[in-house]
């Protein structure tokens, strides 16, 4: 199962790279969502997969009785998801604002900060 997950992370990365290289920034944002998921899964996978044993301590026990899932990557992924949401929302707003001010969704045409050589002359 871990190998299968590694494979699907590879697919997520491949599609997100393709999407993030697209000229349309909307596709770029789709790629951003996918690569966030891929990153979260990578961290999760690095802690290995343990089915059916959440990292909780039973009432009355001082420590988990048997092997439970790795809690550390879970904590990392949890915050990463929330931050990923913040990033996604900001990117969405930025793109929307770029569209309303510049009138285009194509990143090649967004050249206010770095104008073309012949634009400036």
């Amino acid at each position: 199962m871990e190998s299968l997950l590694a494979l699907s992370i590879g697919v997520l990365v491949a599609t997100s790279v393709y999407l993030m290289l697209a000229p349309n920034v909307l596709r770029f944002i789709f790629g951003l969502v996918l690569i966030s998921n891929a990153a979260n899964l990578t961290i999760f996978l690095a802690g290995r997969l343990t089915p059916g044993a959440p990292p909780l301590i039973a009432e009355g026990a001082a420590a988990p009785a048997k092997l439970v899932a790795n809690a550390l990557p879970q904590a990392l992924v949890l915050t990463a998801i929330v931050i990923g949401f913040g990033l996604f929302a900001f990117a969405l707003v930025l793109m929307f604002r770029a569209y309303t001010t510049l009138g285009t969704l194509y990143s090649d045409e967004m050249r206010v900060a770095e104008p073309r050589e012949n634009d400036s002359i």
Binding site: V82, F85, G86, A89, L92, V93, F96
Partner: peptide
Amino acid sequence: VVFGSVLTLVFAMEEEI
């Protein structure tokens, strides 16, 4: 923080877009 941030984003987007 999470509550306020999410609502900040959603309200602003609902209103401005």
